[in-house]
Structures are given as structure tokens and as C-alpha cells.
Design a binder for these strands. Structure first.
Lengths: 354, 354
DNA sequence: CCTTAGCACTCAGGCATATCGAGTGCTAAA
DNA sequence: TTTAGCACTCGATATGCCTGAGTGCTAAGG
């Protein structure tokens, strides 16, 4: 069931016009718009065929045509031209990405915000939390006689710390002992291997040290937990109100509240495992989540390093500028991968440009 | 210009009925509703007076009355009954607050989310970033020959760290030297005292160490900067769509985009300096920001320790359940103050209940 | 066989009109 | 000072009409 060249051209024109104007497009407008030298009547015939084959839809009998999800799919797969970003746009993205060297989770959140601003759609970003992480190392730093800092480093080289204040005195040698104990007993263990028994044994070896071992290990467990079940960062949810398909407050509200439920969102996004390294586009009913059945999602994945991956994407109406969004998203994702890949360089060191 | 008891009663009934139903309330309904034994005609007379004095407004001639900002103000100041939270509600709040011991900024964000969920209004939370902070201490921990962790502690006892990877080798003694240098040259300095010259001098003293000093100090500066210009955490913006005054998408959008501009929000909130330690209520035009002129803001402050304060609050239509919101907010704020005030206790240590 | 012109038909959206009823303000009596 | 009664106002809702964009179909033309 191949489509003729002309029908493809017409379909493409319908999609692009509708993306731009959000109005159903009619045969006459198409005759003027597309570079076709046929009359509106001919186009009408083709439109009827395309509608019958499910690529287009008609809101009501006397209205123009609107692309169906199937139509968008064909457009995305075959008709869409790869969009190249302007120099200005790439510069803007680069600047934003390199602005500050920050903690991993902050960077991810920041990237989400940027994408949302860039595309005018709500965006989200997350790090995939699949891998079983372990603690690589503990350090304890004495601050004063009644407080110390615990520094915990995971095997994915994420470092977190926390200040502990104590109800009692503590000396440097004691702390040294604790550090060694922690490093021998708990390094290399995954979250579920950090059992209460293990902690009790270590606690015992430490001798009456006010349960400090458990305290520090609990912290380490929290770190592992938060990394493995890593958060979804959403941004710019208010952008859905920019688009006419959400003039209906009820619809907008449904989508918004869905977007603010981190958990279900994370689940929905983990599912369409990004096989290729490229961007992935889910149109309307292709989404698994019911709440997204009449929205589209564009995803891109990036490498965090150590084999870990992250996902960044936007949500919007099916009438979405797929070409632009996909281009921007994949550029940002690339940028993120590079950011995480490169070691920290002293300022002033010339960076490799490509 | 004192109001009679009856007029106060009527005003209060109008406010409370309107808060509940969002419908203008008429004389007949009031006669039934308020515990008054007068007829609707009498109430009409009083309503006319109240309207003339500016406590009530009339959307149009043949509609009921609606409280004006002035009316809400009187209600809040004199007529409103302090709301006590149910045991269930306090329990819910306590659980959420004590669920996890987290980093300062996470706790604040979490609290905002909680408040939003609790009240069904958009919420925000921030730590006031007024104080001039200084670095209290540096620690460098060698991870392997090509990477180390820098731990920076401010005089407000906030601790941050970062992993640095180097393009060259580094030994333990070198790191020791760097640590001492950092601690002697940069401790106790405020952000603007960390001048480039100071860094150059220290760099020189360190001898060719790949600009590591600058690297670590830049990180410290970022930490100070982010703490002093502390972020505003907003949550639950989508809740504004729950309320009928924002059925108009245009209005909703305006407010939403205002709420997502962290900067202006922070500014707007810093202004009404919370003098008393209690909650503060800003009704409609009492807000300085134009965008908030027809919304109300309820604020509560909490202590972070070391004399630092934070603000937590919600935004909503002027028709807001002030009593409930204020009660919840101040309870959460109290909880936060306690949370920050108490030292880290080993698990199992019984906590003081009040 | 494909394309085109012509034409009758459909239907959402805009506009004017009519109706309804909640709520008011005013007056006069209690 | 309160109350009952009544005319009046005006938003909300319903109804009908009209318009015009856009269609599908048919018949003629390349």
C-alpha cells in the first residue's frame, strides 16, 4: 500500500501547516501552499483517500483535515526533514551547559529546565537508576570535638557528605578507628547487603561508640537508595498552557497532575527502553500510560559514564514540531554525554573542540 | 467607625460561605446560614452598608456579595477563628518531616512540596540568603593518583563536596600541602574577599600544581554563591487549576509563569520581612508584585540555625481558606525550625515530645 | 484513467433575541 | 429598627438564524 509521491507531499503539507497553525487545513489552502500544480478538487480526492487509509482525520464533516497519529508517524519516519540548529541556538545551549560545573543531579535538573525553555514544552530529565551500586569508600573528618563530616563515595564516583553533630565528645583516634572499620566492613556491598546484622557486628567491634557506625551506614544507604531510585526532574509544566489544545482547563489539569507525579512518570519513561542511541518519538496512543494517550513524547538518552544512562525529553500535544524538538533534544543529550564524559580540567586549559 | 456585632457576623458569614462555594452570596442564603434571627431584608440593609464601607463587593447589580480585600483583611484580623489541626493532620506532617534526614536544600524543597499537597495551593520555600558567609574549612581526600575530593565547609555548617579528576598524577604529601595552603589563605573570607590576586599569590606559593588552588577555590566560591543567593523551591503550581478563579487559562498562565520565575518570586518574598515570628498574610493588592495583585500569599518563617531564617508559604486566589492554610503553614514552619535546631541523634535515641 | 470545474450539502461559530430567576433597592407598615 | 412586598436589573441560558469554509459527488475535458 504505497502512497503516491503526490499524496506524500500532501500529507507532509497537511502536517506542517497544522503544526504551525493548529487549524484544520483544507484543500484550497493546500493547493496554494504545497508546490503542487493541481487543483483543489484533485487534492480533495487525495485527501479523501488519505483519510480513508487513516493518515488524516476530520473533526467534522465540513472542516479541513488534521493528521492522525498514524499520519504523524509516517511524517516522522519518512517525510520529516532533519532540522539543523542555527549557530545561535547551539551557542545558547553550549553556554547554558558549561555555565557551571555542578553536582550531577543539579546538572540534570538544569538540563530539563533548559530544554523546556528551548522548546516551549514541559520537559523532564532523569538518570536511569538500574545499576546496583556499592559504596567505594568512607571518610570521616573531625570538625570539632562534638561533630564530624562523613564523606561517602559510590563506585559510580558520586560523592555525598553529611555533617553529624553528636551529643558527646569524640577524638581523632576514635574517628580513625571508625573510618577503618567502616571501610573494611561495608565497602563493596550493595544496598541489600547492608543488613542489620552486619551493622550490629561492626558496631560491636567498635565498642561503645554511641551507635555511630549505624548512623554513618544509614546515611550511606540513603545515598545508594536515592541514586538507584533516582528522581525525575520536571520543568516548565506551565508551558502546556501555551498550546491551544490545552485551552480546556480540565485537560490541562489532568496532564499537569500526571506530570507532577514523579513516580508514574519515571515508570512510563523507563519502559520505552531507548535501544538506539538516537532520539525516540512516541506519538499519542503509542504511549503506554493512559494519561499520555493523546500527547506525544520525544526522548533522547545520554551517557553519564560508567555505563549509566539518563533520559531527557519533552511532552506536548501530538501537534508538535517534531523536527525542531528532536534536533534540540539530541543536541542537548550529546552535550550532556560530553559533559559527564570529560574529566575536570583546571580553568584555562584549552578544551577540545570538534 | 465600628461595625455592629451583627454586621461582623454577617461579614464573617459572607467570607466563609464564599470561601467554601466560590459563589457570590445573597441575603436569603445568609438569613438561613448565619445564626441570625433577622429577615433577609434586614440583612440586605446591612449588606448595603458593608458594601458602601468597602468590605464587600458586588460583581454586578443583581448578584450576591463577595468579600473585597478589605473585607478579607478584617476577617483575617478579627473574625477568623484559629484553626486547630486534627491529630491525623499533625501526624501526617510529622511523618513527612521526619521521614528522611536529608541535605538542607532537599529538606526545604520537600517541605514546599508537602505544604502544597497539604493545602492544594502552589507553595514555595526558600532560605533567606542575606548573611555574608565565609569558608570555615577545606579538606582534600585523595581517591586515586589522578583524582581527589574537595570538601568545603561554610561557617553556617553547610558542607559540600566535589570530585575532581586530574589530567596528571598527584601524591598524598602534595595534597597535604595544598590543604594547609587553602586553610591558611582562604578560611574566614567572604565571597568578594576571594579575589583573583589572593588566588594568584596562593597559587604561586603552591608551586606548579596545575592551578589546583584556583580550581578548589572556584568550587568554594560557587558554594558560597549558591548559598547566599539561595534558590526558591516551588511546588504544586498545577494546583492553581483546581480553583475556579483560574478557569480562565490566560490568568492561570500569567500566574504560573510568574511562579516559575525564581528570581522575581524570591525578591517579592524577601520584601515583606517577617517581623513577628508568626505567619503573615498578604491579601490581593497588599502584595507588592503586580502579578500577585489579585492573589493572596500566606507566609511563615522558620529558623535554620546560626541566626539564618527561611520562608515557606503558599499562593492562591484571595478566596483562600486563610484559617486552615495559616494553621498548617505555621505547624510546618515550627517543625522545620525544630528539625534544623536539633543535633543529629543516633537512631533509637528517644526524642523529646512536647 | 486522471484531472478539473461546478454545485448542492453540511455544520461549527457568531449574533441577535427571548426567557428566567436570583438578588437587589426602595417604600410603607409594624 | 425591623419586616413584608414589589418592581427592577442583569447575567446566564436557550433558541433560532445566518454565514462561510469546506466537503463529496458528478459530469465534462485532457
Amino acid at each position: 500500500m504505497q502512497l503516491t509521491e503526490r499524496k506524500k507531499k500532501i500529507l507532509r503539507a497537511v502536517v506542517e501547516s497544522y503544526i504551525e497553525t493548529a487549524e484544520p487545513v483544507g484543500s484550497k489552502a493546500l493547493a496554494a501552499l504545497a508546490g503542487l500544480k493541481v487543483s483543489s478538487a484533485t487534492i480533495r480526492n487525495d485527501l479523501a483517500d488519505l483519510t480513508e487509509q487513516g493518515y488524516l482525520e476530520q473533526p467534522h464533516t465540513s472542516a479541513g483535515r488534521v493528521p492522525s497519529p498514524k499520519g504523524y508517524r509516517l511524517y516522522v519516519n519518512e517525510l520529516m526533514e532533519e532540522q539543523r540548529l542555527s549557530l545561535e541556538e547551539t551557542k545558547q545551549i553550549n553556554d547554558a551547559l558549561h555555565l557551571k560545573m555542578q553536582e550531577l543531579d543539579k546538572v540534570i535538573g538544569q538540563a530539563g529546565r533548559m530544554v523546556s525553555q528551548l522548546t516551549n514544552y514541559p520537559a523532564f530529565a532523569m538518570a536511569e537508576g538500574v545499576r546496583r551500586l556499592t559504596i567505594k569508600r568512607f571518610d570521616l573528618i573531625l570538625v570539632d570535638s562534638a561533630s564530624f563530616i562523613a564523606v561517602v563515595m559510590t563506585d559510580s564516583s558520586v560523592v555525598k557528605n553529611k555533617l553529624f553533630r553528636l551529643p558527646a565528645e569524640l577524638s581523632e583516634p576514635q574517628l580513625q578507628l571508625l573510618t577503618t572499620l567502616l571501610n573494611t566492613a561495608f565497602v563493596g556491598k550493595t544496598l541489600d547487603q547492608l543488613t542489620p546484622e552486619l551493622m550490629r557486628v561492626a558496631e560491636h567491634a567498635a565498642g561503645g561508640s554511641y551507635g555511630l557506625i549505624s548512623l554513618v551506614v544509614s546515611f550511606a544507604m540513603e545515598v545508594l537508595d536515592s541514586l538507584e531510585n533516582s528522581a525525575v526532574y520536571t520543568a516548565g509544566a506551565s508551558h502546556i498552557l501555551d498550546h491551544p489544545e490545552y485551552q480546556d482547563v480540565g485537560k490541562a489539569q489532568k496532564l499537569m497532575s500526571y506530570l507532577s507525579e514523579d513516580r508514574s512518570l519515571a515508570q512510563a519513561l523507563a519502559l520505552p527502553a531507548l535501544d538506539g542511541d538516537d532520539t525516540k518519538i512516541l506519538i499519542g496512543p503509542e504511549n503506554v500510560a493512559d494519561e499520555l494517550k493523546d500527547t506525544s513524547v520525544v526522548l533522547a538518552s545520554y551517557d553519564i559514564g560508567d555505563g549509566m544512562k539518563g533520559v531527557i525529553g519533552v511532552v506536548g500535544p501530538t501537534r508538535m514540531d517534531y523536527a525542531k524538538v528532536a534536533a534540540k533534544l539530541s543536541y542537548v543529550a550529546d552535550g550532556l554525554s560530553k559533559l559527564f564524559g570529560q574529566p575536570e580540567l583546571p580553568p584555562g586549559t584549552p578544551e577540545k573542540e570538534e
